[in-house]
Simulated scan of single mutants.
Amino acid sequence: MTQTHTIRTVLDLSTGHLTEQTRTLLRRAQSRQGFGLRTVPHQHGAIAFLSEDLAQDLEHVPVDLARTVTLAHQHSALLINFDADAPTHPDLPVHD
Rank of each mutant, 00 (worst) to 15 (best):
residue 52 E to L: 10
residue 56 Q to K: 11
residue 84 A to F: 08
residue 87 P to I: 11
residue 73 H to T: 12
residue 81 N to E: 14
residue 48 A to D: 06
residue 42 H to F: 15
residue 85 D to K: 09
residue 63 V to A: 15
residue 87 P to H: 11
residue 54 L to S: 03
residue 81 N to K: 08
residue 60 H to P: 03
residue 62 P to V: 12
residue 62 P to H: 10
residue 52 E to M: 07
residue 82 F to M: 09
residue 48 A to I: 07
residue 71 L to T: 09
residue 71 L to K: 07
residue 48 A to M: 05
residue 49 F to T: 02
residue 79 L to A: 01
residue 67 R to E: 13
residue 42 H to Q: 14
residue 83 D to W: 07
residue 69 V to W: 04
residue 42 H to W: 15
residue 42 H to P: 07
residue 36 G to N: 01
residue 63 V to M: 07
residue 64 D to Y: 08
residue 54 L to N: 00
residue 80 I to H: 01
residue 47 I to W: 06
residue 72 A to C: 11
residue 52 E to R: 09
residue 66 A to I: 13
residue 64 D to K: 02
residue 46 A to C: 08
residue 57 D to C: 11
residue 44 H to A: 14
residue 61 V to N: 02
residue 66 A to M: 11
residue 52 E to S: 10
residue 65 L to V: 09
residue 65 L to K: 05
residue 39 T to C: 15
residue 39 T to Q: 12
residue 38 R to F: 14
residue 62 P to M: 12
residue 77 A to V: 06
residue 73 H to I: 02
residue 75 H to R: 14
residue 51 S to G: 15
residue 45 G to I: 00
residue 40 V to I: 12
residue 54 L to G: 00
residue 84 A to P: 02
residue 35 F to N: 01
residue 36 G to D: 04
residue 57 D to I: 06
residue 61 V to M: 06
residue 82 F to E: 11
residue 39 T to G: 13
residue 54 L to P: 00
residue 73 H to E: 03
residue 85 D to M: 12
residue 59 E to G: 04
residue 87 P to V: 09
residue 54 L to F: 06
residue 44 H to S: 14
residue 83 D to V: 00
residue 45 G to M: 02
residue 57 D to Q: 15
residue 44 H to E: 11
residue 56 Q to N: 15
residue 37 L to N: 03
residue 76 S to P: 01
residue 45 G to F: 04
residue 77 A to K: 04
residue 35 F to D: 08
residue 79 L to M: 11
residue 41 P to C: 05
residue 74 Q to P: 04
residue 38 R to A: 08
residue 38 R to Q: 08
residue 64 D to H: 08
residue 76 S to V: 04
residue 75 H to Y: 10
residue 41 P to D: 09
residue 42 H to R: 13
residue 86 A to W: 03
residue 82 F to D: 09
residue 55 A to M: 01
residue 83 D to Q: 00
residue 69 V to G: 00
residue 80 I to P: 00
residue 75 H to S: 12
residue 69 V to L: 13
residue 61 V to H: 04
residue 35 F to V: 09
residue 51 S to Q: 14
residue 68 T to R: 03
residue 78 L to E: 11
residue 65 L to T: 10
residue 82 F to R: 06
residue 79 L to K: 02
residue 64 D to A: 02
residue 65 L to M: 14
residue 73 H to S: 08
residue 62 P to D: 13
residue 49 F to D: 01
residue 41 P to Y: 04
residue 65 L to N: 02
residue 53 D to Q: 10
residue 79 L to H: 07
residue 40 V to K: 04
residue 86 A to F: 06
residue 84 A to Q: 13
residue 43 Q to R: 13
residue 65 L to A: 07
residue 83 D to L: 00
residue 61 V to F: 02
residue 81 N to A: 14
residue 58 L to E: 03
residue 41 P to Q: 06
residue 87 P to K: 13
residue 63 V to D: 13
